[in-house]
Amino acid sequence: MLDDRARMEAAKKEKVEQILAEFQLQEEDLKKVMRRMQKEMDRGLRLETHEEASVKMLPTYVRSTPEGSEVGDFLSLDLGGTNFRVMLVKVGEGEEGQWSVKTKHQMYSIPEDAMTGTAEMLFDYISECISDFLDKHQMKHKKLPLGFTFSFPVRHEDIDKGILLNWTKGFKASGAEGNNVVGLLRDAIKRRGDFEMDVVAMVNDTVATMISCYYEDHQCEVGMIVGTGCNACYMEEMQNVELVEGDEGRMCVNTEWGAFGDSGELDEFLLEYDRLVDESSANPGQQLYEKLIGGKYMGELVRLVLLRLVDENLLFHGEASEQLRTRGAFETRFVSQVESDTGDRKQIYNILSTLGLRPSTTDCDIVRRACESVSTRAAHMCSAGLAGVINRMRESRSEDVMRITVGVDGSVYKLHPSFKERFHASVRRLTPSCEITFIESEEGSGRGAALVSAVACKKACMLGQ
């Protein structure tokens, strides 16, 4: 009897593995994704193909990295998701002549009506938060230079001027797309009239992360975010950046690689679950690469896999709870928690219980395998993109072996128990001629924006502006 049951459990697990095998990517698959990513990057950089390229390769006008001589107080704003952060950054000489960066910050959550109302409502709310922060720190009387981390696709015309191309991540505030974001912020500050600010720089969160990590390690020339969304930036040779005049030196390019796949480059790798996630998203047909990796989508992918296993009578005796059938019910943090389970399955059992399920031991094991399959594919897909960037940098610099540091931020990278190990191992397999160091950014977005502002202020002083 026991043997029969054991055989049935083994057969069930084997069927589960057959279904989950769809998520496995072979090294040849990853090399294919990497080569296609490089081709799209090239198209994004070139003037004649930029418009139709899915990977936009947006110039950021960040050319210099901090040298350690900029000092002063800077205000930093960070808008990239449902939370908005205001930070005071003091850049100065530390002990023994070292450079020191001290920060104080406060988080504000953005109400739904500000995210989806008008641009005026959104930026009025942001300036209200700045006003509140300055009151708390008794700094209303000071006109501070301000660095703005704005983590949406922007076409820069200068370091302090950028046109919002399109909202992502659930934002829909009308009247912002096609307009200068810094102008919208300046107008809102003017409307309030109770404080003055000098907006000197606007950067993407990947750029802010790279600059913040450069402060720790001067070989950091790539910034990457794996959180709600997924994106990367890197220092490109100016001669390859056709959208900006000049051939000397390097400029940081914001790849906006989340949109890779929007022209069909990933079609052969998309599964039924991916198509369902895409169809029910706020932007169907867009940001397809990001939807395979980002935390906004990972939990939902797992939920759809679990429903398939229920329908195949391989999980929960073929019956799903009402909660499990509800879109968004299986949160991405559950994926991390399930994979963090120590082996007694308590954590998995508790999560499934909150979803109205009474799982068996085998159910718990199957749910864990589903989570591992989805998150491992995410790590491997992400590795193909980064390997594409790094191999490109090595080739354009004609280096036999390139040493490089990548600064990384984002909740999936930082909080998932195995993502970074799987990701690092896969990147290294795909970049055999590179020695890569990964560092995690601390308060990256805010500190990085302030350091970019410090560079901009120093330049302005040198130019006598």
Rank of each mutant, 00 (worst) to 15 (best):
D4Y: 02
D4L: 02
R7Q: 08
R7F: 14
A11D: 07
K13W: 10
E14R: 14
K15I: 13
E17F: 15
E17G: 11
L25E: 15
K32A: 03
K32N: 10
D42L: 13
H50P: 01
Y61V: 03
R63G: 00
S69Q: 07
D73F: 01
L79P: 03
L88D: 14
V89S: 03
V89F: 09
G97T: 12
G97F: 11
V101I: 10
Q106G: 05
Y108I: 03
E112N: 07
A114G: 09
A119V: 12
D124M: 03
I130A: 06
I130K: 03
S131V: 12
H137T: 13
Q138N: 11
K142Y: 08
V154Q: 11
R155Q: 13
I163F: 12
L165P: 13
G170P: 14
A173W: 08
S174K: 04
A188Y: 01
M197R: 00
V200Y: 08
M202L: 04
M202Y: 05
N204W: 02
T209V: 03
A232N: 08
E237N: 02
N240D: 02
V241M: 01
E242K: 01
M251V: 10
T255Q: 11
E256L: 14
E268S: 11
E272R: 02
N283K: 13
Q286W: 12
Y297H: 09
L304W: 04
V305R: 00
V310S: 10
E312L: 08
E312D: 05
L315M: 13
L324G: 02
L324T: 07
R325H: 10
G328F: 04
T332M: 14
T342Q: 04
I351M: 01
G356D: 09
R358T: 03
S360A: 02
R369E: 04
S375Y: 04
A378D: 02
A378F: 04
A379Y: 04
A379K: 02
S383Y: 01
A384L: 11
G388A: 14
R392C: 05
M393Q: 11
S396G: 09
S398V: 02
L415K: 09
K420Y: 14
K420M: 11
K420Q: 08
R422T: 14
R422Q: 15
R422L: 15
R428P: 13
R429Y: 14
E435F: 13
I439A: 08
R447V: 13
R447E: 14
